[in-house]
């Protein structure tokens, strides 16, 4: 009995030290990590909607549309996390959506830009845990280019599912996830665009 208590105590001490070290490291790094993430997001937003310089979080509008869609039982919008309006000199030039479609190794944080014409202006991946060398090729600009120019009303699918996009070799699931994100963004764009009459509030 005494031996069990002793071993338990030693383990407790080791875990407490480990926990303290992690708490300390987290304390000195969390602010910088958050700042880095904000910089990366801003850069990704600029990448996918070329020309826009300022972005405004449109959380209220997004929640409103999502609530309506779920009331009508329309699927496909759950993939969208956030919506930003992109502005250049006070004029709206397009919408940017951050999405997290399920990939092979968990959700893939994707940013999709849609220009006011309703065409995909850019796709970028900010965080993922896909297989290195196969699924991780979704970060390859050459793959992301395949989605540019697709316009609203089109259903994006990989060729394996009878669609128009060439999937990455050996990574159909990861490619399909990006297609899901693009579909969600196009669908969302259409709803928002119809809602806020063209050039009106946007």
């Amino acid at each position: 009995m005494r031996e069990v208590l002793r071993l338990g105590f030693v383990l407790l001490v080791v875990c407490a030290i480990g926990g303290a070290v992690l708490a300390f490291v987290d304390g000195i790094t969390s602010d910088r990590i958050a700042a880095q993430a904000a910089i990366r997001l801003q850069k990704a937003l600029e990448d996918v909607l070329p020309g826009a310089a300022e972005f405004q979080d449109a959380e209220e509008l997004l929640q409103e549309v999502k609530a309506e869609a779920s009331k009508e039982g329309r699927p496909g919008l759950t993939v969208i996390d956030k919506m930003y309006l992109g502005y250049f000199q006070d004029e709206c030039t397009g919408l940017v959506f951050t999405c997290s479609p399920p990939g092979y190794g968990g959700p893939i944080e994707t940013v999709v830009g849609v220009s006011l014409k309703g065409e995909i202006s850019g796709v970028s991946v900010i965080r993922h845990a896909e297989t290195p060398g196969l699924g991780s090729n979704i970060t390859n600009p050459e793959f992301q280019m395949r989605f540019i120019g697709i316009s609203k009303g089109t259903e994006v699918k990989v060729r394996e599912d009878g669609g128009q996009i060439d999937a990455i070799t050996g990574a159909t699931i990861s490619s399909r996830a990006i297609a899901d994100a693009v579909n969600g963004a196009l669908l969302m764009f259409e709803i928002v665009y119809d809602k806020e009459a063209p050039g009106n509030e946007l």
């Binding site: 987290d26 790094t29 969390s30």
Partner: peptide, 22 residues
Amino acid sequence: IFIVVIATFVTTVDLIMAAFLP
């Protein structure tokens, strides 16, 4: 104990790298 040491080390490396070598 080995597992706690290794996991602590890996997490520390991960956090420090994310903050200072993004």
